Computed example of a mutant assay.
Amino acid sequence: MPEVTNELMFELLKRVHHEIGELRQDVTKRELSVMRGHVVATQSDIYGILARQDDRFERIERRLDPRELAEAQRPYEPK
């Protein structure tokens, strides 16, 4: 069994420190990727909701046809 010296312990600690640093960067990249995926999913949900609301609004407008009911209005004149 090799003799345990301060130099050996220092080299082992440097190696462990380096590996932990790489692991931390890897985890951070994965977390960012997951968060990016959630943001994209949320955006697509919002765009889908807005598209449905726009379609509903257009159907309501077609059904009511507000242009036929519009009355001529005088321009605003402050007193």
Rank of each mutant, 00 (worst) to 15 (best):
residue 14 K to Y: 05
residue 56 R to L: 11
residue 7 E to F: 03
residue 30 R to I: 07
residue 66 P to M: 07
residue 10 F to Y: 11
residue 44 S to M: 14
residue 14 K to F: 08
residue 46 I to K: 06
residue 1 M to Q: 06
residue 14 K to L: 13
residue 59 R to W: 07
residue 36 R to P: 00
residue 26 D to S: 11
residue 79 K to F: 10
residue 52 R to C: 07
residue 18 H to M: 08
residue 50 L to N: 10
residue 55 D to Y: 11
residue 23 L to V: 07
residue 78 P to C: 02
residue 75 P to E: 10
residue 49 I to P: 01
residue 46 I to T: 13
residue 63 R to M: 08
residue 47 Y to I: 05
residue 79 K to A: 11
residue 19 E to W: 04
residue 51 A to K: 15
residue 46 I to Y: 07
residue 58 E to P: 00
residue 21 G to E: 11
residue 61 E to Q: 10
residue 20 I to N: 09
residue 53 Q to C: 06
residue 51 A to L: 12
residue 66 P to C: 02
residue 31 E to S: 09
residue 74 R to Q: 14
residue 41 A to E: 07
residue 65 D to K: 06
residue 24 R to H: 10
residue 2 P to M: 07
residue 49 I to E: 09
residue 49 I to G: 02
residue 43 Q to E: 12
residue 29 K to T: 05
residue 55 D to G: 07
residue 13 L to Q: 14
residue 59 R to Q: 15
residue 46 I to Q: 06
residue 71 E to L: 13
residue 72 A to K: 08
residue 61 E to Y: 01
residue 24 R to N: 12
residue 55 D to T: 10
residue 3 E to F: 03
residue 78 P to I: 05
residue 48 G to M: 04
residue 38 H to K: 13
residue 7 E to G: 01
residue 78 P to N: 12
residue 13 L to Y: 10
residue 28 T to R: 12
residue 4 V to N: 06
residue 16 V to E: 13
residue 29 K to S: 13
residue 66 P to R: 09
residue 43 Q to W: 01
residue 17 H to L: 10
residue 21 G to M: 03
residue 16 V to I: 14
residue 51 A to R: 15
residue 1 M to E: 13
residue 54 D to R: 11
residue 57 F to G: 00
residue 62 R to Q: 14
residue 41 A to T: 02
residue 22 E to C: 13
residue 45 D to G: 03
residue 17 H to R: 11
residue 27 V to C: 02
residue 53 Q to G: 01
residue 62 R to P: 01
residue 56 R to M: 13
residue 11 E to K: 13
residue 8 L to P: 00
residue 50 L to F: 11
residue 46 I to A: 08
residue 52 R to K: 15
residue 56 R to N: 09
residue 8 L to G: 00
residue 22 E to Q: 15
residue 68 E to V: 12
residue 3 E to K: 02
residue 30 R to W: 07
residue 67 R to Q: 11
residue 13 L to I: 05
residue 25 Q to D: 14
residue 10 F to C: 04
residue 4 V to G: 00
residue 76 Y to W: 15
residue 25 Q to F: 05
residue 19 E to T: 04
residue 35 M to E: 12
residue 76 Y to N: 03
residue 79 K to I: 09
residue 64 L to I: 14
residue 70 A to G: 02
residue 48 G to S: 15
residue 42 T to R: 07
residue 48 G to F: 09
residue 44 S to Q: 15
residue 40 V to G: 00
